[in-house]
Amino acid sequence: MEEQSIHDLGGRMKEHLKPLAWTAGILAVLALVGGLVTPTSMITMLTVALAVFLYFILPGYSVLLFLKLDAVERILLSVPTSAILVPIVLYFANVFGLPLSRTVVIMVCAGITALALVLFVRAKTTAPHSPQE
């Protein structure tokens, strides 16, 4: 029974990862094309794409897993969700003395993502019929 539940969860997580993979792919293609057809260097284009994914997509997407949204809504709304959560956390981290450095920004983006994913998996494994789907 428990094995079945974990198997279901794995399948659903795979479904949730698909839109992320598509988004990463689209960003990468846009960066590559941008690097080829504009005066901007390829490395700049790729870092911008990576930053958009890390800063604006991942944290918001992870949090929105808790809401009953379709894949398109979840991906597109991950931008405003991240734009609310990431800078607010960074601002208060700075109030408490942490510098707004690259390391801290990465830690905050990764931290929000990881925390949301852990809570989501935990919610799924302890109560399979909540909080979404």
Partner: peptide, 13 residues
């Protein structure tokens, strides 16, 4: 100010 200042940290912009 926070959003551009922190986002740009992740890029070479």
């Amino acid at each position: 100010f926070t959003i551009p200042a922190t986002f740009t940290k992740l890029t070479t912009l």
